[in-house]
């Protein structure tokens, strides 16, 4: 079978404040042999603002891109950004299920869209199509001192009828990827809680308060790092972390890393190659504390032996006490 080729939709935020998400995703795709091409001359998906105006209009902004991809002969588009993902999925869902809606959308477009392209998050492509085995096999380095809180954000897998991926209340795909990298995952209750979304500019205080709850929950769970899959979540938790501290009187200093950057670190890439320098709260110490898989396995083995030896000694001691 020929290898699946995906259309890769970068999206506006990944050209700007989230460049490191794009950069690290490409590194990870290349490392795992995912074949992707970019649609030429893509435009904004419309995101939240468009669907406050009109659903047909919003779907048209998304469908312009889907139609470009359709004309490239591809049937799956993958994107990192949950907002783009939802814009594509909702357009596809409404157009497929409602002929009049489809017609109305196509009337706004130069090139008609025939509903032949399905959207998948990059997380889904890595989890389902590439698979945990392949990810595990690619790991060269272990970040042994990280305790990760996997934060999915609200719309990566909801609503289930449209998202069609993972569990809508307790998703585990990212948890499992992080575990496959040999990293400890915390039991984090706010995986899906909203960070304040796109209201950061007009409603800053509200967003700071909502984001605070997410970070506080991660810290309470024992995490020393939050792993994200959404550029908006990342921005609200990282870029705004100092604002959060000022607004809410908290004192957080916790790195917020894209899951793709984490994968890249585990695959042995340099911080620079993964855009780690773009994070506001530094995560460099995790890059420095990485050890090779080989060394990690040796350490684990030594620990195991030490434990066994201690048990032996204890057994002998208690044995002696019992039979004086």
């Amino acid at each position: 079978m020929a290898k699946k080729r995906y259309a890769y939709f970068q999206g506006c935020s990944l050209e700007g404040t989230a460049v490191e998400y794009d950069k690290s995703m490409r590194v990870v795709f290349d490392a795992l042999g995912v074949d992707y091409v970019e649609p030429e001359d893509w435009s904004c998906c419309g995101s939240t603002p468009a669907h406050t105006v009109d659903h047909v209009f919003a779907a048209a902004l998304a469908a312009r891109n889907l139609s470009i991809i359709e004309n490239m002969g591809l049937d799956v588009v993958t994107t990192n950004c949950p907002s783009c993902l939802m814009a594509f999925k909702k357009a596809q869902y409404s157009m497929e299920n409602d002929g009049t809606f489809k017609e109305k959308v196509n009337e706004l477009l130069d090139e008609k869209y025939n509903c032949g392209v399905y959207a998948k998050s990059s997380l889904q492509v890595l989890y389902e199509d590439v698979g945990l085995e392949a990810i595990k096999n690619r790991v060269t380095h272990i970040i042994h001192d990280m305790k990760a809180a996997p934060y999915y954000g609200c719309i990566m897998n909801r609503p289930p009828k449209i998202a069609q991926f993972d569990d809508p209340e307790n998703p585990t795909s990212m948890d499992r990827i992080i575990s496959a990298l040999g990293i400890e995952v915390c039991d984090f209750a706010f995986k899906l809680e909203c960070c304040g979304a796109a209201f950061g500019v007009p409603k800053r205080k509200m967003v700071n308060e909502l984001s605070k709850k997410v970070i506080a929950m991660a810290v309470d769970a024992g995490a020393n790092c939050i792993i994200v899959a959404c550029p908006l979540c990342q921005q609200n938790l990282d870029l705004r972390q100092e604002q959060i501290n000022q607004t809410t009187g908290s004192n957080f200093n916790i790195p917020v890393i894209y899951f793709t950057q984490l994968m890249g670190l585990a695959f042995g890439y340099t911080p620079k190659e993964l855009g780690l320098d773009k994070l506001i709260v530094s995560a460099d110490h995790f890059a420095r504390s990485r050890i090779t898989k080989q060394e990690y396995l040796e350490r684990e083995k030594a620990k195991e032996q030490e434990k066994k030896a201690k048990k032996e000694v204890k057994k002998q001691e208690t044995g002696e006490e019992e039979n004086p």
Binding site: G16, D41, S43, P49, A50, V53
Partner: peptide
């Protein structure tokens, strides 16, 4: 009003450039 204005600023950028210019 501020929320609507923010959305409108966003959409103006899309109309002008095709993408968001932050």
């Amino acid at each position: 009003k501020d929320i609507k204005l923010f959305y409108d600023s966003f959409l103006d950028s899309v109309k002008k450039f095709g993408r968001i210019y932050e």
